[in-house]
Design a protein around this nucleic acid. Structure first.
Lengths: 166, 166
DNA sequence: TCGTGATAGTTCAACTTTCAACTAAATCAC
DNA sequence: GTGATTTAGTTGAAAGTTGAACTATCACGA
């Protein structure tokens, strides 16, 4: 098969501006939010895990599901859980319905930790981000990024599936 | 001083939606872009370093400046440079004007690597992000995120300075 | 009921990132 | 000038992350 070189479609100035503004702001923003959480001995990723756990019925979620909703790999979750378990924030319980599985369970201490961290984190998200958006901005952003996410999911499905026709 | 507990201003549904949409999309997006670069043995962070270097006059930049424009810590840059140096993509040269300093210099091999990776990366940025935005979206995004960045910078200056009045 | 393949979760080794400590040179204040 | 401070950059150890290999269990079809 002859591989034909396709001339790449470079970004025009408007596209470039949007992309760079986004990427720079995102880097800085995440950095700032992480720094703001430092006082609670939490990273954004750990916060996300605890927040998801605290939201679940009985504050317990299967490991796999937790990994998925907190957007971390199973391996990473396993490691972080070990750390957070040592800190006394979570506990693991064997799953009776499925003996391969286990439950991630939030302890009282973990609950207290997240309840204490949440107001500061929300304030930080406001200060650094949300309060600088108008209502319209918020709606626009949500629309745009939902589109991006669903597109990513579609592509992922495309890639995972053997593909009928592309 | 009596510390008074301030009732946190939680996010309303619109704000929450915007924030979550943004954070979820961003995580997934970065993940996808990183995965797309894997074929070139590059991470987004390394790509950024090489891209900045390739843009500089004579493809050479002082280490500190490179760290700043590529948005990585000096320590991290130092470590990555060692790896990329081993790969033959960059080289370090001593700085004659300031003997503490050193230049990061892109080699021909590095140039070839980035020239080869760039079209794929741009395609990936398009596929995953830019092509899903209208021109208006692009302008809105740029405006919003520029605002976020400048705000972050202002806050940072605030924090760094001893503060006259806050 | 057996075997085959998928799923849940952990672990290990390799790699990356962070943070603090460090060297050396430049700059500043007097 | 000279001592104090700042700046440039690197280093080493500790902590975090990744991806593949692994164990155990489950689910399904013949």
């Amino acid at each position: 098969m002859a591989t034909k070189k396709i001339e790449p479609r470079w970004l025009n100035p408007r596209e470039m501006k949007a992309w760079r503004s986004y990427i720079v702001a995102s880097r800085r923003l995440l950095e700032a939010l992480d720094a703001d959480l430092l006082g609670h001995e939490l990273s954004m990723a750990d916060y996300e895990v605890l927040a998801q756990l605290s939201d679940a019925p009985d504050r317990r979620v299967r490991m796999s599901e937790l990994a998925e909703i907190a957007m971390v790999s199973k391996s990473r979750l396993s490691h972080r859980m070990k750390v957070m378990e040592k800190a006394g924030w979570v506990r693991r319980e064997e799953c009776l319905e499925d003996k391969r599985g286990s439950w991630a369970v939030m302890t009282d201490k973990g609950w207290k930790a997240i309840v204490k961290a949440a107001p500061d984190h929300v304030a930080s998200v406001r200060n650094r981000f949300v309060d600088h958006l108008t209502s319209k901005d918020q709606e626009d952003l949500a629309k745009i990024f939902d589109r991006v996410t669903s597109q990513l999911r579609d592509q992922f499905i495309d890639e995972a599936a053997p593909a009928k026709k592309r």
